[in-house]
Structures are given as structure tokens and as C-alpha cells.
Computed example of a mutant assay.
Amino acid sequence: MSPQPSWIIGLMSGTSLDGIDAALLRTDGESIAEFGPALTLPYAPALREKIRALLNSGGHAAGAVARQLTQAHAEAVAALLEKAGMTAQDIAWLGFHGQTILHRPDEGRTWQIGDGALLARLTGIATVSDFRSADVAMGGQGAPLVPLYHAALARHAGLAPPLLVLNLGGVGNVTYIGGDQDSDLIAFDTGPGNALIDDWMLHHSSQAHDEGGATAAQGRVNEAALQRLLDHPYFSAPPPKSLDRNDFSAAPVQGLSVEDGAATLTAFTAASVARGLQHLPQRPLRCLVCGGGRHNTTLMRMLTQQLNMPVEAVEAVGWHGDHLEAEAFAFLAARAARGLSLSLPGTTGVRRPVSGGRFYRP
């Protein structure tokens, strides 16, 4: 018998390095009872740059950055509780993803910084963290972990399979929902999401990202550079498969104008998603897009052209695109607390369904 649904806060800080998403969800880890408020707390620029430096340093001085990151998450929890008119006593768990610094599952390594014990003390709320390590230890890719939540959302909304849910954060990943059972799920990272575009804009303009895809819209796709980008062996490899934020290089677009480079990298993201369709057993009826990439009008247009199916932001079916991954880690915290699986052979390649998480009391 399932327990009564509880209010849980999910926390997500993704590979785009834009900040912390925090969301309230009332759930038992199997179904969704109620959506609560959500918010985004942008990283302070100094903390963002410290995290960015860690990505390229091998993790030196990670302890100090992890403490600052954890404190920022505690501030996000406090702000969300205030917004919701709740207190720590109203919350059963925090689902704390942390910030991914390294993801090398083929080497048996995945590393998310963040101190779960400290967060539990700072917030007064029991905390679940380290969602990925158990999967990697069992031979899985450790990602993506959101598919079980995508499936719960689809059931909640009564959406017909086959359905594709595309998340465009720093890295792109898809969940293919082929039927009503969790065993009908297939998931994998498709390729770059926003990371290459963001890094290009950061280094070649005064912007941290291509707002609305406006810069790409002014450029022309360099087909030769695009083909070099698509020659990466990752795209022909069958799932399960996952990526680190820095697995792809923008070297083929070096020397292009800011506009042409942005257009080509945007086309690369769209084409990499299209390449992923070859690994699915059926063509999906539609593609629902979450993550920051859905705000990029040029990217959404290119996806529609490349996929040749309806491509819509998840708001079209009433989902919360900016906070869906934070909601997912609330859902996964509930599952972890019950010892339910967080990943499946079809979603990460793990040998059998596996739970996970580390648990900290205040």
C-alpha cells in the first residue's frame, strides 16, 4: 500500500550554470497529487565563475565551492517556503541534485558537488542527495534520471503514447514513452543542448546566451562546419548513452561570424535530436520540449523542420517547463525514500532497476 503523498522540495542546478530551480510537489513517488509553487534563484556571478572554473580544473578547491553552492541552495529553500507560506515542518524531504562537475560513466565516475548533510542542517529538512552514483556503480550511465517523472506526468495528463519529451538544458536528452508501463521507457542524451551556444555567445559577444535565438536568426548555417560537428561517433552509438557538458567542441565553427556560429551551433543541437530518432522503435506522435532551450525560437523552428512532427513547449499540456527537473528531483526523492527504482535498463542501461540516494537528517 502506498503511503499518503507528502510535500517535497526538489532542487536542480543544471549544466547551463544559470542558477538553482526549486519546486514543491506533493507526491508518493508513483503518482502526482499536487503541484506547488516554484522559483529560480540565479547564481551570483562570482559563484557561477567558480563553478565554471571547477569544470576545467579537475575539481581542485571543490570543497569551498561546494559549501557556497549548498548555502545558495539553502537560500532557495527558504525563499520557496516563504513563497508557499510553509515552514520546514511541512516538508517531508529535500531532493538535492547538486551541481555536476564531472560525468564519465564509462569510467565509473559521476560527480555532483553539494553537501547534503550541511543542507539538512541549514534548512532543518531531511535531505536526499547523490542520486546518480548507485546507477553508475551498477553499470548504468547515471543519466538521464528524469524519465520516470516524465512518464508520471504523461499519465497524470492522460497523454497518448508514443510520446517524446525533449529536455534542452546544457545537454539535450530525450524520454521516449512507448506505452503505459515504465518498461516502455527509452531515454538517452541526444547531444548538446544549450551549452555550446551559451559558451559561443559568452566568448564572442556581451551576452551569456542567445536570447530567443535572435543572433542565430541573423546568421546562416555553415553546412561544412555542421557536418564536421555531426561526424562525432556519439551519434551512431546506440543507447543507453550519456554525455558530459564538455564532450563536444565548437572548434568547427571557429572563425565564423558571431551570427553564423550561433546559427550553426543551433542547427547542430536540432540535428543531433533528429539523429536520435533512429534509435526509437516507433515514430512519436509529438515532441514536448522542456528546459531553457524551448525559449529559443530559432532552435524550436529548426527542431520542427528536422523532426517533421509537432514540436511544442511543455506548457502546451500544462507542465511547468522552467521547473520540471526540480519537480523531478522531488519525485525521485520520494521514490528513494521508499526504496523504489530511480533508473531502469531502458533509461540508463543499468543491469536491473536500481534505487539510490544518500539520506541526511537535520
Rank of each mutant, 00 (worst) to 15 (best):
S2Y: 01
P3D: 14
Q4I: 12
P5M: 01
I8Y: 06
I8H: 07
M12H: 12
T15I: 12
S16H: 11
I20L: 07
R26G: 08
I32C: 11
G36E: 11
P37Q: 10
A38P: 08
P42A: 09
Y43D: 07
A44P: 13
A44E: 13
A46K: 08
I51Q: 05
L54D: 06
L55T: 14
N56Y: 09
S57T: 03
A61C: 09
G63V: 05
T70L: 03
Q71E: 14
A72M: 04
V77L: 00
V77I: 01
L80Q: 10
M86W: 09
Q89C: 00
W93Q: 01
G95H: 02
G98C: 02
Q99G: 04
R104P: 12
D106G: 14
E107Y: 11
G108V: 13
R109L: 15
T110S: 15
G114D: 08
A120K: 00
R121L: 09
L122S: 03
L122P: 05
I125H: 05
T127L: 00
V128Y: 00
S129R: 04
S129L: 00
V136M: 11
A137S: 15
G139L: 14
G140Y: 09
P144V: 14
P147M: 05
L148M: 06
R155C: 08
L159H: 14
A160P: 12
V165H: 13
N167V: 15
G170K: 10
G178R: 01
G178A: 00
D182T: 12
L185P: 13
A187T: 08
A187K: 02
P192C: 07
N194W: 03
W200M: 09
W200K: 10
Q207A: 15
D210H: 06
G212L: 04
G219P: 10
R220Y: 01
R220H: 14
N222W: 08
E223D: 13
E223A: 15
A225D: 05
D231Y: 09
D231Q: 14
P233H: 09
F235I: 09
S236P: 02
A237K: 12
P238L: 07
P238H: 02
P239T: 13
P240G: 13
S242Y: 01
S242R: 07
S242A: 12
R245V: 12
R245T: 06
F248R: 04
S249I: 01
A250P: 08
P252Q: 02
V253C: 05
L256C: 01
S257M: 05
E259N: 13
E259K: 06
A262K: 02
T264D: 15
T264M: 08
L265W: 03
T266S: 11
T266Y: 02
T266W: 03
T269R: 02
A270L: 03
S272Y: 02
V273P: 07
A274W: 07
R275P: 00
R275G: 00
Q282R: 15
R283Y: 03
R283Q: 13
V289N: 12
G291C: 13
R294H: 14
T297Q: 15
L299G: 12
L303M: 13
A313N: 06
A316E: 05
H323R: 00
A326D: 11
A326Y: 11
E327I: 09
E327C: 08
F329D: 13
F331V: 06
L332P: 04
L332K: 01
A333K: 03
A336R: 04
G339E: 08
L340G: 03
R351D: 15
Y360Q: 02
P362A: 05
